Amino acid sequence: MNATIKKMTRIMDELTYFFFSVGSQGIRINLLRLENGCELHFSSGYSPSERARVNDLERFLQVEESERDQSLEEFFWQLAGSNRNGGGQDSELHLIGQMIDRASVQITDERVDLVLFKQRD
């Protein structure tokens, strides 16, 4: 379970970085340890001028199971954590989508609410 929690904290870091880059003035985060994994509740506002980037977030996070490549998860996650200049924000968001098992994304004109689930490693 420790590996799962560590990955979820890095996911929180990437999401925090992303939302402050799209104009957030505050973020609410709640991470729950469940018997079979971890569930992250993440809520943030954003600048209306950044709506297109926020909409991209939904596409990156809702990856079909058939599109996931779990064999690369560990390798890419280590790379993503080592250099923020490596592939741009989109690559980090895409990586999060590859790592999580379920995502619920609700976007309104003012706010984004996410619920992400990662099964226990």
Rank of each mutant, 00 (worst) to 15 (best):
N2F: 08
N2H: 11
A3L: 13
T4M: 04
I5R: 10
I5K: 11
K6P: 00
K6T: 14
K6V: 12
K7E: 15
K7F: 02
T9Y: 08
T9G: 00
I11R: 00
M12C: 13
D13K: 15
E14N: 11
L15A: 01
L15R: 05
L15W: 02
T16N: 08
T16G: 09
T16W: 01
T16L: 02
Y17N: 09
F18G: 03
F18L: 01
F19N: 03
F20T: 11
F20E: 09
S21L: 04
S21Y: 01
V22Q: 05
G23H: 06
G23V: 05
S24N: 02
S24L: 04
S24C: 02
Q25E: 15
Q25L: 09
R28S: 10
R28Q: 11
I29A: 08
N30Y: 05
R33I: 07
E35W: 07
E35S: 11
G37T: 07
G37A: 08
G37Q: 08
E39Q: 15
L40W: 06
L40V: 05
H41V: 10
H41A: 10
S43Q: 12
G45M: 01
G45E: 07
Y46D: 09
Y46I: 04
S47G: 10
S47C: 12
S47W: 01
P48Q: 09
E50W: 00
E50D: 07
R51T: 12
R51N: 05
A52D: 15
A52K: 12
A52E: 15
R53D: 06
V54E: 06
D56Y: 07
L57N: 05
L57P: 06
E58V: 08
E58Y: 03
E58L: 04
R59N: 11
L61R: 05
L61V: 10
Q62W: 00
Q62N: 13
E65R: 14
E65Y: 06
E65Q: 14
R68H: 09
R68T: 07
R68S: 03
Q70S: 14
Q70N: 08
Q70W: 11
Q70Y: 12
S71Q: 13
L72N: 13
E73V: 12
F75D: 07
F76Q: 13
F76M: 14
Q78D: 12
Q78T: 11
A80L: 05
G81K: 00
G81M: 13
R84D: 14
R84G: 10
R84Q: 10
G86W: 15
G86T: 03
G87T: 04
Q89R: 13
Q89F: 00
D90W: 03
D90V: 02
S91E: 12
S91L: 14
E92C: 13
L93D: 02
H94N: 11
L95W: 04
Q98A: 07
I100T: 06
R102D: 15
A103M: 05
S104A: 12
S104V: 14
V105I: 07
Q106I: 09
I107P: 01
T108F: 03
T108E: 07
T108L: 03
T108P: 06
D109S: 14
D109K: 15
E110L: 09
D113Y: 03
V115L: 08
V115M: 11
V115T: 15
L116R: 02
L116Q: 02
L116D: 09
L116I: 01
K118Q: 10
R120Y: 02
R120T: 10
D121M: 07
